[in-house]
Design a protein around this nucleic acid. Sequence first.
DNA 1: ATTATATATCGGTTTTTATCGATATGTCAA
DNA 2: TTGACATATCGATAAAAACCGATATATAAT
Lengths: 104, 104
Amino acid sequence: MEPIDVFKALSNKTRLNILKWLKEPEKHFPKQGAHLPKEVSYKGGVCVGDIQEKAEASQSTVSHYLTMMQKAGLLESVRYGQWTYYRRNEEAIRQFAEYLKTEI
Amino acid sequence: MEPIDVFKALSNKTRLNILKWLKEPEKHFPKQGAHLPKEVSYKGGVCVGDIQEKAEASQSTVSHYLTMMQKAGLLESVRYGQWTYYRRNEEAIRQFAEYLKTEI
DNA sequence: ATTATATATCGGTTTTTATCGATATGTCAA
DNA sequence: TTGACATATCGATAAAAACCGATATATAAT
């Protein structure tokens, strides 16, 4: 987890919003998990399409954002069928907050 | 203090270094305060020239960096004669770390 | 097999950021 | 008041990021 990459990922309004939205997925993405059979639930995960709809940017842009945030360590993902579900990587985020507090 | 501006300011290696160096000015800037009469000491402040030397970038670039970091709220400055001294704005940095921990 | 759907990747254009040298501004010393 | 120095700002170019539509890939349904 490179701090610089995390700072870059967070220095964009839409990406910052995505991270915040994913704190309360059920609140911001009402139809969350609609495509998932219950036995494969991925807690807190939201599919790209739902995020795109809310973010109001093109499909390719949002896909790119999510990849970038994942590479930075802020998100993790799982693919179920044709959907990719993204959710926060809470442990990495916690570590980053800790890094900021002590090292910066 | 706009979080986005802070993230942008921190998403550059040199700027991030400057912020870290200023945590221990006496360690990283040996001749710190050399131009200052003792009665006007500005605790933790380092002049632009010393920072530039250490940062190994042009004078205009470093000056620009410092201005940007100040606008973001990470630094504060005072002018003494022909020198501008910059130091960390610890309270703002603490607030930002707190924001990150609770809001992000 | 074909079609439909979701997501990822590609290629290109526009916008922003990085970075420098040159110049302006402000201060000090002779 | 002239000259030297520190810093800030300007103007320009180069590099990187943003962003989109088009296309590729993977899965699912018919």
